[in-house]
Amino acid sequence: MTSKTWFITGVNSGFGRQMTEQLLSRGDRVAGTIRRAGSVDDLKQKYGERFWVADLDVTDLTGVRTTVDRAFAELGRIDVVVNNAGYGLFGAAEELTDEQVIGQINTNLLGSIAVVRAALPHLRAQGGGRVIQISTYGGQATNPGASLYHAGKWGIEGFIEGTARDVAPFGIEMTIVEPGGARTEFRFDSLQLATPLAAYDNTPAAMVRGAKDRSRPPLGDPAKMAARIIDSAAQSPAPLRLVLGSDAYKFVTTALRERLAQIEPQEALAASTDAG
């Protein structure tokens, strides 16, 4: 197996950490970005030059381009770019503050777009590469109390799918990963919850208030999920979407069937508005 070089945002925890550990242990190189100083010192000490680390807040768009440019300059070819950095924001739309809304979109949508845009010139110049976007089943399906989280994920999925068509002639392929719930610290360390409004106390949106309840562990094994994400980079052609977890498969397929059931009966109505 030929070793690869990966650029991964948010390697201090969750899927980013899992992927980094697995990749380094098999002999690949990883350029990783972190928000918490010292959070990956153990990996740096163990793997040395094969693990390149930079501090990066993906909402700093200038910093994103500078960091990506530096990674390519110092490491040469980067085979796979992984957009992993992000966080959850739960609560009914009117429970959220303006600052929370802006922070969510800046991180989960604009930050991911910035990483891809910064990497594309380098990927074109080297004749190809792979972009992997970590999304969620919530990029295709929705739950009450997660409207802004969905907004960012639906947005980035549209961006990746559209951009994949743009860059296919250059040998650049893209994959959107849609995991279900995973047993990482995502729900506990990085998840933000809105300040509750009493009006939503007995509504479906209130269910997300218990999202940090550790007594109900998610189904997904993060190590297995990380391994499947890594494996997808060797698939040719690249899968446009990779659904991980039986819960994710159920939510996504149900949402798609419901959407088709709503739209298909409108075929005649849609055609009735065509110019005669």
Rank of each mutant, 00 (worst) to 15 (best):
D166K: 06
D213W: 11
T203A: 11
A141S: 14
M207I: 12
D213L: 11
D213Y: 10
A226Y: 02
R187A: 14
L148S: 00
E178M: 05
V116W: 02
V131S: 03
R228V: 15
K153V: 05
G162L: 09
T184E: 08
G162N: 14
A168G: 11
P218V: 07
P121Q: 06
V177W: 01
A199V: 13
A119K: 01
V131F: 06
R241G: 08
F188C: 05
P196C: 13
R117K: 11
A146F: 15
P204T: 05
L191H: 04
D189I: 08
A226F: 06
N143W: 12
I176V: 15
L193S: 12
I230L: 02
L193M: 09
R187D: 03
F159Q: 03
R214V: 07
F170S: 00
Q133S: 12
A141Y: 13
I176D: 01
G145F: 06
I132T: 15
G220A: 05
D221Q: 09
P217W: 05
D231H: 09
L242A: 08
P218A: 07
L123M: 09
P144W: 05
T175A: 05
G220T: 09
I229K: 02
W154Q: 03
I229A: 02
S147Y: 01
M207D: 08
S236Y: 08
H122W: 06
G129T: 14
R130I: 11
P237Q: 14
R183T: 05
T184N: 11
K224V: 13
A223V: 10
P217H: 07
L242V: 03
K153R: 04
R214N: 04
T195Q: 11
L123T: 01
G127P: 03
D166E: 09
F188K: 10
Y200D: 09
D201G: 06
R228I: 11
L191Y: 03
P144T: 04
R130E: 09
Y137A: 07
E161S: 07
E161I: 00
P218N: 06
D231Y: 15
A146S: 14
A238V: 13
G129D: 07
